[in-house]
Design a binder for these strands. Structure first.
Lengths: 295, 295
DNA sequence: TCTTAATTGAAATTTTTGGTACAGCTTTTG
DNA sequence: CAAAAGCTGTACCAAAAATTTCAATTAAGA
């Protein structure tokens, strides 16, 4: 006679705990107003907000102690200490295994639209990584880590946003970083300052934009180094580019997906930040300090 | 005087806190036998062993409760709660500060940089998809497909670029789409036109920006519907948001990754485009025609 | 509008926890 | 070897924390 009442303990031993935070998020609708306030406080400083006393938690959330108690009870804990114990254990587990992230938890059929789209995007990312020569990637990191260079980001209609995204990060990591609008009228005059010391990082995918191409050609003619992030069909900018990093972009959509480009961008940001850590760290700290001074 | 009064904070205020663990290790010799047992327990499960109760800690260390108390007193704390508070703060600071993550320099460099980054991002995407309620996603698609609504996109320092990305696509798919800059000075006056018919799509991840929150709160107060794309810790904007779509953002980088947010964005664009195909198709064709006429 | 149900917090209550005094034991030292 | 000093645990107490009660308030329904 089997005692297999439990389904979970059959084969998969250490199933990643469905983080309490995630559960709270999903149940958010079913909470009363004051429970929501408790939930938001907890999630916004997860899980540290929950490690204080009930009174402290209640005050910070702007509700009463009993409401906090009702909140944790509703989450299924026998009491506040029980709740705290869970938080501690979760935190410890998470900290001990830094790679406990990709938690394949509930198999609740996600929105099919979203799920299938995601699978396609993931396929793109894998293909993108495989088709980029490590040497090329490293060379670009090297280039962007050179403090004597000026870095200019630019992009087309849709990819311009990615260029801005890159610029907003690199601007903090290092100096001499800016963004150039695609329209010729907006950059013509700036070109007089572009020379051998400059690097243009251009984002351009199909329906390649002529104005971005023109920008890069002009810059290259003046001696600038051009780095191109594009699609597998390669923008014509490649003719003047020193380095080309292509990303797969086809998705089940009427539009192309830029996720691969973003992946490369973020990987570049991460690598350059690490490379320039000695100088980047104080810059990041300074930015953080300024942020905190505002209020 | 024993200790130098000179503080090294003349210019660089908040640098590396001398972890309590380090101090304990250095002072180990000066401890009594039972204090040493306490110290060893704490160091071996630092700092979690210290987050339990005195009684628990004493039992695990194999000593009595008073010895534990004497131990923490000797470390300079006014009592056990004070000691615990310190541990929590230390832990929180270490975990939250993206600056702290870079302390142990790993040796992987070059080719693996992109590949391992990609794997982490893929993990994020999977986790993101699994944690979004299908109903929520569909509801947002429905909302953004309503031609009678005005759609406004906005975002913070880094996420603003994603908002622009979304806006540049939706602008073509449908009418009445725009982008709002985060700074209050730039949107204050526009708020008079925001009402029940408006939808605000806000992008906001940790180091949540107050100005974006203010924008959403103001808009919500006037009856607008707020859709929030955020991280698993949920921006405070959630208070006023009708729909919340969280994305996992932690990557092997000093920066958070926005790939999950981009995934959701693109999936929304794809779904809405399909939903509104009858009207979107002629719009897209018209845009293409205009592009070709320009030269 | 009135009634009913749900939600919430002030205050009282109970439980737990941290803290202290003191006596026994161990080690050190003259 | 004896006296002093230091260390440790038992037992108790005080303080603080969690929890329950219950009345007031608010929202929902008829």
């Amino acid at each position: 006679m089997k005692h297999s009442n439990m389904k979970n303990d059959s084969m998969i031993p250490p199933v990643d705990p469905p983080s309490l935070a995630e559960r709270i998020r999903l149940d958010m609708d079913s909470f009363t107003p004051s429970e929501k306030r408790a939930a938001h406080l907890l999630l916004s400083h997860y899980p540290f907000a929950g490690l204080d006393t009930v009174a402290e938690f209640a005050t910070r959330a702007g509700i009463s102690a009993p409401s906090v108690l009702r909140f944790v009870t509703r989450l299924g804990f026998s009491g506040f200490p029980d709740f705290q114990k869970h938080l501690r254990e979760e935190l410890e587990a998470q900290l001990l295994s830094p790679l406990a992230k990709a938690s394949p938890l509930d198999k609740s059929q996600g929105a099919p639209a979203l799920a299938s789209f995601a699978e396609a995007v993931i396929g793109n990312l894998r293909a993108t990584v495989e088709n980029i020569a490590p040497a090329e990637f490293d060379a670009v990191v090297e280039l962007l880590s050179d403090p004597r260079r000026h870095i200019h980001f630019t992009g087309g209609r849709f990819t311009g946003a990615l260029a801005r995204y890159a610029e907003s990060h690199f601007r903090i990591v290092r100096s001499q970083v800016d963004f150039i609008e695609g329209q010729p009228a907006l950059w013509r005059d700036r070109m007089i300052e572009i020379g051998k010391k400059d690097v243009i990082v251009a984002f351009d995918i199909r329906r390649y934009q002529e104005d971005v191409t023109a920008l890069c050609e002009t810059a290259a003619k003046q001696g600038a180094t051009v780095v191109l992030l594009t699609d597998p069909w390669i923008s014509p900018i490649a003719r003047v580019a020193r380095h080309v990093l292509p990303a797969h972009i086809v998705a089940p959509s009427n539009w192309d997906s830029s996720t691969g480009l973003l992946l490369i961008t973020e990987a570049l940001v991460a690598a350059v930040t690490k490379r320039l850590w000695e100088t980047a760290k104080p810059r990041m700290e300074a930015v953080e300090r300024l942020r905190n001074e505002k209020p």
